[in-house]
Design a protein around this nucleic acid. Structure first.
Length: 975
RNA sequence: GCCGGGAUGGUGGAAUAGGUAGACACGCAAGACUUAAAAUCUUGUGGCUUCACGGCCGUGCGGGUUCGAUUCCCGCUCCUGGUACCA
């Protein structure tokens, strides 16, 4: 018994943790809590690669550290197990997605357990489990039963809205609702039929069914939300996406726009992610102005953020999709304008987006009247106006808006300056300045002009101050099988909720996972997909929920994952509160991270949780990229003399090492080296194809071939494994450099096709989980994107062995001494303690590993084996390398887990120095070092520095111009 | 275009209330041990220059502030993430 046998040690302690439920988290009000969470994975068929655990390792280290610091830690893990890949696989193979999902989860769990995470597995959740999605459905029902009251600034029960309608109609109700919601009185309401009432309520509910323009992805057979579409293609699979009007469920997230925006100020997230959310929400403060159309009853509503420039309006522009635009076209403009609308409408979203340079538009022939000065201005249709934003109409101020300017220039429309400044370089948006040529707001400062203009609008009833958001309501349905069924049935074509006691509404079996013949979603294939009430049997909703439904609230479920009577007991959600550390990728900035905040705020309004921000602190880990390796094959096509057309020669497989390959590419190869390569190809050809007459190869052409990174070590190819990699390579020949075959390398995305996927299991097999954990951290700052590269992993492994050896004598026997450590030994230890504590607050994991290495190197140098040093050292290392730490801890004679102990206290006094080696600079350049007592005064230091030989040499008899002395830091002599 | 993040040896990276640039590790080189190899250990390792002592240059580029700048300011280049006619 001697060696560091990581395999046995790791298995042993993983079993111990599981058996003793070491990481079981229980509510304990006597201790401060720490909730540490990882963005939960979608269990894909490919399993984990080394990039996935990066964030988990970091959060695991923090969790274990916090536990040692006396916190009660919750660190759960689970699976976002509904999703498209399993369903696509089901479509191809007929295998039920639940089965493949189950298998994938088993594989993920096994892989995760091998890494030794301090997860409380008893809290595991799976979004596709009926006991989980029962509550996803329940939350959906609460949303359906709620509306957003703007006076209360929170969600309230829809029943209370009905009560108000019954007594006062909706004219005094300030609530978030559909744009075209009509005004009605109490009498109107009471006279409405049941159907009319339900239709009206849908305009208020926080989740509602409505005809919406959606992103339709034909290849996936479903609609997608905005954040699932990237550049006109689906994020998953990269299929084309088109805009289409469809009846869909939506979430009225826009009701929460302002709170989602404000909430960002009180959470500790990275600025880029917050900024992304701010942009996504896109709040604009401005005004709505109503323009009358000349000789017509029509009016045009525009939204503007620059109502102060209203005297500079020289035309109005409408979106081509707008119905109003079509109706305003006059006879003499009909031909051109209608033709334009036709073309503009049929241009795809993508085309319009990619082609922003082309200016196009058409005059409708109608005029609008500027309500401020009564001026008649032309009404145009222009495709730079988006139908989906604001009112789909803009008041154009060419002088102070670049797009309006370009448009006006192009069509020769008037450009009228209304802000003081120079127009020499075209339009200027003017963030500040005085208003000119503008009637009663002339000579006012912009801000003031804006206020006055809005007052004017409101007084005259021709507009009002308004806040506009870019964010749209989120589409909530997918025409897919593998998702949560909506707890909704239809009566008279209107949606009703199923009874709460019937939850969960379990996903039915279907014969195929494809749409029905008449284009209904897959649930249309299910038998008896109906809801039976006392009144009759009604069809259930056929669409399912999107991927983000289950992940929008899972952090609450973790606190009480087994509860069947409530989604989570409030004493538990109260105790664990907001997530104290959330680690995951920033790619979820406008999806999951926004929706989770939305649902949390809603549940908060409902009074069922006490926090309104789910993730207090978030860190975004950088992606681990792949590092591909290449071999360079000599293109072996030499000329053959033969009459046999069917002759298929065996082309030799000859590979050139990178150094020589570079010479070939750069034309630096010597004739000798060149002939060596050519001879090898030619000889090999003869050997493989005896008797064939051929012209020897005379030029070298090389092709780059991806080679499996798992048979390459420090860029050196393992020749035996390479030959065994594929049958056609068995006879491969190599041109080496210095006796080795060196591969080329490039950073690419980690993917199977590039043979650069590294599986954590392989690393664990070779070096152990502790090495993997340390190495992933050692690679660099957590947030940084970096390629996976095992080049340095040996160093980390060596470190663990050195650590192990500190506790063992050179015969390999465990041996620690109870003697009092020296000052140096204490110093080495406490330097590491200090660094680790600092690093934990900064989440700087890579530097902690370095400081451990320094500490162990120093202790090795001191031949230290003192218990008083080695016990705290084991604790220090335990969050990073828990298995070896547990083993050493138990060898030290402890019978309980190292996780039960507490973090060693840092003692500054061990680091106190009495002397310091001052760097002495001459004109800012380090020239000499002098060792001085730290108690010396400035004058004494100065004197000592000037007395130094080297300083004397530089002074060359002169006296210094100036001396800078910073005690304990530096001396600078200016000559 | 706009809004973020970044650029340091052969490599991953360290050091920013301005104060010894290159910690730690990889790689490489030399040496020890060994019949040999592996493993391990020791030493060296930014570039140029010098027998050596030493000197000069050096944190993407160009300026500036300062006794002193990887760090602060101004102007660029390149890479990278987000977003895109949002009125």
């Amino acid at each position: 018994m001697a060696e560091y046998t990581f395999k046995e040690i790791e298995k042993k302690w993983q079993a111990y943790w599981e058996k003793n439920q070491t990481f079981l988290a229980k509510v304990n009000p006597d201790k401060p809590k720490f909730y540490s969470l990882d963005m939960f994975p979608y269990p894909s068929g490919a399993g984990l690669h080394v990039g996935h655990p990066l964030g988990y390792i970091a959060s695991d280290i923090v969790s274990r550290f916090k536990k040692l610091k006396g916190f009660n830690v919750l660190h759960p893990m689970g699976y976002d197990s509904f999703g498209l890949p399993a369903e696509q696989y089901a479509i191809q193979t007929g295998q039920h997605p639940a089965i493949t999902t189950e298998q994938n989860i088993a594989r993920y769990t096994e892989q995760l357990k091998n890494i030794g995470f301090a997860f409380d597995w008893s809290k595991e959740v799976r979004t596709s489990d009926p006991s989980y999605y029962k509550w996803t459905q329940w939350i959906f029902m609460q949303l359906f039963n709620s509306y957003y009251d703007q006076d209360a600034d929170k969600a309230l029960p829809i029943d209370s809205l009905v009560e108000r309608f019954e007594v006062e109609g909706n004219s005094q109700v300030k609530a978030v609702c559909d744009d075209e919601t009509p005004i009605f009185s109490a009498n109107d309401w009471n006279a409405f039929s049941e159907k009319e009432k339900q239709e009206m309520l849908l305009k208020y509910r926080l989740t509602f069914l409505a005809e919406t323009t959606v992103n339709w992805c034909a290849a996936l057979g479903t609609v997608l939300s905005n954040d699932e579409v990237k550049d006109g293609f689906s994020e998953r699979g990269g299929h084309p996406v088109e805009r289409k009007k469809m009846m869909q469920w939506s979430m009225r997230i826009t009701a929460y726009a302002d709170r989602l925006l404000k909430g960002l100020d009180k959470i500790d997230w990275s600025e880029p992610v917050k900024e992304m959310q701010r942009n996504w929400i896109g709040k604009s403060i401005g005004a709505e102005v109503i323009f009358k159309v000349k000789d017509s009853d029509e009016t045009i509503k525009v939204f503007t953020t620059r109502v102060d420039t209203i005297y500079g309006v020289t035309y109005l522009a409408l979106a081509p999709e707008s119905d109003l635009a079509a109706s305003l076209i006059t006879e003499d403009q009909r031909e051109t304008a209608e033709a334009y609308i036709e073309v503009a409408k049929n241009r795809s979203e993508r085309e319009r987006m990619s082609d922003v340079k082309t200016i196009s538009g058409a005059f409708t022939g109608s005029y609008a009247i500027n309500p401020f000065n009564g001026e008649e201005i032309q009404i145009w249709v222009a495709d730079y106006v988006l139908a989906g934003y604001g009112t789909g109409a803009v008041m154009a101020v060419p002088a102070h808006d670049e797009r309006d300017y370009n448009f006006a220039k192009h069509f020769g429309l008037e450009i009228r300056q209304v802000i003081e400044g120079s127009m020499e370089e075209g339009s200027f948006p003017g963030k500040n300045g005085f208003i000119i040529n503008s009637g009663f707001i002339s000579n006012m400062y912009m801000k003031e002009a804006m206020t006055k203009a809005i007052e004017f609008l409101e007084e005259k009833g021709i507009g009002k101050g308004k806040i506009q958001y870019r964010m749209r309501d989120a589409i909530f349905t997918r025409q897919r099988y593998w998702g949560e069924p909506l707890p909704v049935y239809f009566k008279d074509g209107l949606p009703y909720l199923v009874d709460e006691k019937d939850l969960p509404l379990v996903l039915p079996e279907v014969d195929k996972y494809l749409p029905t013949e008449d284009g209904e979603p897959p649930l249309g294939r299910a038998k008896d997909w109906t809801y039976k009430t006392s009144e009759g049997e009604y069809p259930l909703e056929l669409s399912t929920m999107p991927g983000w439904a289950g992940s929008s609230w899972y952090f609450f479920r973790y606190t009480d994952s087994q509860n069947d009577s409530v989604f989570a007991d409030q004493t538990k959600t109260d105790y664990w509160g907001s997530v104290d550390l959330y680690i995951g990728g920033s790619e979820h900035a406008t999806g999951h991270l926004l929706y989770s905040r939305f649902w949390t705020k809603f549940l908060y309004d409902l009074g069922v949780v006490s926090i309104d921000e789910p993730f207090q602190k978030m860190i975004n880990q950088g992606m681990i990229q792949g590092r591909s390796n290449f071999v360079y094959r000599v293109f072996p096509k030499l000329i053959i003399h033969t009459d046999d057309e069917n002759l298929k020669p065996n082309w030799p497989q000859v590979f050139v090492s990178k150094g020589k390959r570079d010479k070939v590419i750069n034309g630096e190869i010597s004739d000798f080296e060149k002939n060596e390569i050519l001879d090898l190809v030619n000889t090999k050809f003869i050997e493989l194809n005896p008797g064939i007459d051929f012209e020897p190869l005379s030029e070298i052409k090389l092709s780059d071939i991806h080679v499996d990174v798992n048979i390459v070590y420090n860029d050196q190819l393992n020749l035996e494994k390479f030959k065994a990699w594929r049958p056609d390579l068995a006879d491969a020949e190599f041109i080496l450099e210095d006796g080795k075959y060196i591969c080329g390398a490039e950073v690419e995305k980690m993917s199977k096709s590039k043979y650069n996927v590294v599986n954590p299991d392989d690393i664990i097999e070779k070096y152990g989980a502790d090495t993997l954990r340390l190495y992933e951290m050692f690679l660099g700052p957590l947030e940084q994107f970096k390629p996976w590269n095992t080049n340095g992993i040996d160093g980390v492994f060596k470190f663990l062995r050195k650590l192990w050896n500190l506790y063992h004598n050179n015969k390999g026997e465990f041996q620690v001494s109870d003697a009092e450590p020296s000052k140096e030994e204490y110093k080495a230890l406490h330097k590491a303690i200090k660094k680790m504590e600092e690093d934990m607050t900064n989440f700087s994991f890579n530097t902690s590993v370095s400081s451990f290495m320094i500490c162990v190197n120093e202790l090795s140098g001191l031949k230290s084996n003192k218990r008083k040093i080695l016990e705290p050292l084991a604790i220090l290392v335990s969050p990073y390398a828990p298995h070896i730490a547990e083993e050493l801890w138990s060898l030290l004679g402890h019978t309980t887990s190292i996780t039960e102990t507490s973090f060693p206290a840092f003692d500054e006094s061990y680091l106190k120095e009495s002397a310091f080696e001052y760097p002495v600079m001459i004109n800012g350049k380090m020239r000499a070092k002098i060792n001085l007592d730290l108690s010396l005064s400035k004058e004494e230091i100065e004197k000592a520095a000037l007395a130094d030989e080297i300083v004397q040499k530089w002074l060359d008899g002169k006296s210094p111009k100036k001396m800078i002395v910073v005690p304990g830091k530096i001396v600078n002599v200016v000559i």
